[in-house]
Amino acid sequence: MDTIIYQSNEVPAAAAQIRAGQLVAFPTETVYGLGADATNDRAVSHVYEAKGRPSDNPLIVHVADVETVEKFATPLSDSVKALMKHFWPGPLTIILPLKPGALSKTVTGGLTTAAFRMPDNQKTLELIRTAGVPLVGPSANTSGKPSPTLAQHVYHDLKGKIAGILDDGPTRFGVESTVIDMSVAMPTILRPGAVTVEALEAVIGPVKADHHHVSKDETPKAPGMKYKHYAPRAQVEIVDDPADFAAGVNQASAQADTVGLMATDEVLSQLSLPANVEAFSLGTDIASASHLLFAGLRHFDLESNVSLILAQGFEPRGLGAAYMNRLDKSAGGMHFNSEQ
């Protein structure tokens, strides 16, 4: 299968592929998603095949209006409507109880709930409207690999497996949406993202967080709760204290393998790097670091032959919670030991 890269003025052609039951990757403000007609069970099953994604990992349904959600979900509460009013379109995914039989179990992972989102990307909203159907949209990458923030990332992972990619340049946020479960008594954040706890509580009152790793016999209600995610080929280790990067560079200089560093400009400016250490800038702060995290992991995966990536940690507050959630999964919980 040839994978066509559609430019931003070729939305009708990409939408025609969706209507024909094909897979087309699309841009959002977070990462690129892998789109298929959410009402076409065969097309949705091809999403799992293309990604190598476990079939009990539910998919997020992307919509262009609230009315589409109301076709599938039970009547929306005032709190849900308030979230949609304040944060849609935007990086917030809302889990809702479904009307019986409203969506295929292929979409929901067999659950009686589904996750809905209205992405803040005009080309993708146009794609959904032109196709005339909601789109499932997991990250458009091989399952377990860093999420794609460029069309080229998608092409690397999925060329020959999908019909097309709608290219609208780099994504803005770089980490996936916040996921909040509104099907339970206490609204619960299952995945942190750009919409923070503080922002949510300002609209609907108290929420709690549940980022536990789902057991092998449990079906996750949101992506990223059960299976390995965001991992490049090289081992990633989190550097909790920026001052420890000097020790990391010293350890790297004593070995033959190439080591990658991911840190802010301030940290990198204080280091003298030997020939076998390659740096990737995370910019100036947590906002730029979140935007560049997956791009950095992809850089070392695709363009460098590194055996280890040392990545800067941040305080897990606000946007830092989303950044550290992804980085911890990428590292498999491994932290750099400066005393090795």
Rank of each mutant, 00 (worst) to 15 (best):
R191W: 08
S183F: 02
I189W: 09
D157S: 10
T108C: 01
T196N: 04
G193M: 06
G160Y: 15
S104D: 00
V154H: 05
Y155S: 12
V179E: 00
N141V: 07
V154S: 05
S139I: 10
D167K: 14
P134V: 00
Y155L: 15
G160S: 13
Q122D: 11
E126F: 02
Q122N: 11
P100C: 03
P187I: 09
T108I: 02
N141F: 11
V154F: 08
G132N: 07
G169T: 09
L158S: 10
G174Q: 03
V197P: 01
L111R: 07
A131K: 04
H153Q: 05
L125I: 10
I189T: 11
A115H: 11
T106R: 15
P146I: 12
D168F: 09
H156A: 14
T188R: 10
E198R: 14
I180H: 04
T113W: 10
I162E: 10
F116E: 01
K161V: 12
V175F: 05
V197S: 03
T113E: 06
T124P: 04
A199Y: 07
V179A: 01
Y155M: 14
P148C: 10
S177F: 01
T196I: 07
E201A: 03
P119G: 08
P192T: 03
T178K: 08
A115C: 11
D168S: 12
G137D: 03
V107L: 02
G160M: 14
A151Q: 09
E126Y: 03
A163Y: 13
A199I: 04
G137W: 02
R129A: 10
A131Y: 05
V175W: 02
K145V: 05
T196L: 07
Q152P: 02
G174L: 05
T171S: 13
P192F: 05
V184A: 01
G164I: 14
D167Y: 14
G132K: 05
A140P: 12
V184L: 01
L135P: 01
D167M: 13
H153N: 13
T178I: 09
K99M: 11
V179Q: 00
S139F: 12
G164V: 13
G110Y: 03
L190A: 08
V133S: 02
Y155E: 12
M186L: 15
L103M: 12
L166R: 14
V179M: 01
G132S: 04
V195H: 09
S104H: 00
G109V: 00
G110H: 08
A185T: 14
A114S: 11
T124Y: 02
G160V: 14
I128S: 02
T130V: 08
V195D: 06
T149G: 06
K99E: 06
K159W: 13
L111N: 09
P134T: 00
A151P: 07
T178P: 04
L166K: 13
T130F: 06
V197K: 13
G174W: 09
R117C: 01
